[in-house]
């Protein structure tokens, strides 16, 4: 299946090395099972009923019917998905744009007081959302944005800008200064430099940032729980908790809903992993 990169095979392949390689492989496979099995189990539970889930939670479903999946979709999951999509996409665009502007301003313009602004932006990394919860609720109520999609879009943007800026800035800072010089000689304004030269060059890290933001926004719980209510503004994580409330819960439907909520994100991640890793590789750890 997998070959370890053992250089110059031949005389140096010893018995211990083969054993070592086998051990490593079985370790990877076992860990893979530990990771994958629970997820498979979640999807399979969507085919059971309450009795089977609680009675024999780890057996295979007796019969395969999509009824639970269909019901889950019709009992609210559709609207949760739409809200989650809306919030995730809008806040993702805001976050990445604002962060890219900021990174540009911090690395490629002659902005006065740069260290101070850098500290201000990255200081946000150290502040935890729980600490700001109550003041934020009062503020959003005053703004008339409480219980609206806007509340989540603004909060997700505000709390993700520091990290996203950190990543984009680290990437931008390494782009050669000659780029700016050439553009300026050609008579480009700052805006043109940003949109036509720098931003396109940052594509790998922008893609990574978008993926990281999607992972965050799709699964965020505290803000979504506190700042929204009512079916129109419920996102998936809160919606899943709603499905699981106190009395008479159909757990099979809950598991089906969970699978529906997890599937897109897993697919997106597998599909974009190559770009994701590349962007991070070039941007992180600077």
């Amino acid at each position: 299946m997998t070959t370890l990169a053992v250089p110059h095979t031949g005389p140096r392949v010893s018995a211990t090395r083969i054993i070592g390689r086998t051990l490593l492989l079985s370790f990877l496979v076992c860990l893979g099972i530990v990771v994958a099995y629970p997820l498979l189990w979640m999807a399979l539970n969507g085919f059971k009923d309450n009795e089977q889930i609680f009675g024999t939670p780890f057996s295979l479903p007796r019969h395969f019917s999509w009824a639970n999946y269909v019901n889950a979709w019709n009992h609210g999951v559709r609207s949760y998905v739409i809200t989650s999509l809306l919030v995730t996409i809008s806040s993702g665009i805001c976050t990445v744009l604002i962060s890219a502007w900021t990174a540009f301003g911090l690395t490629r313009t002659h902005l006065p007081g740069r260290p101070f602004i850098l500290a201000l932006v990255l200081g946000g990394l150290m502040l935890s959302p729980t600490v700001a919860l109550i003041p934020l609720v009062q503020m959003f109520q005053g703004l008339g944005l409480y219980n609206s999609d806007w509340a989540l879009i603004i909060l997700y943007t505000a709390f993700r800008v520091p990290f996203t800026t950190f990543l984009i800035r680290a990437y931008m800072i390494d782009l050669p200064a000659e780029l700016d010089e050439a553009a300026t000689i050609d008579g480009a304004t700052d805006s043109q430099r940003f949109w036509r030269v720098i931003l396109p060059m940052c594509r790998p890290i922008i893609i990574s940032c978008i993926i990281l933001h999607v992972l965050f926004a799709w699964n965020e719980y505290i803000f979504a729980m506190v700042f929204t209510s009512g079916s129109d503004t419920t996102t998936l994580p809160v919606g899943l908790a709603l499905l699981m409330a106190r009395h008479s819960t159909n757990y099979a439907e809950v598991f089906a809903a969970m699978t529906i909520s997890a599937l897109p994100i897993v697919v997106v991640f597998f599909a974009t992993q190559r770009y994701f890793v590349r962007g991070l590789a070039e941007g992180i750890g600077k």
Partner: peptide, 9 residues
């Protein structure tokens, strides 16, 4: 960066 972040905090 880290120092600035801490000072800011």
């Amino acid at each position: 960066i880290a120092r600035l972040a801490v000072l800011m905090g």
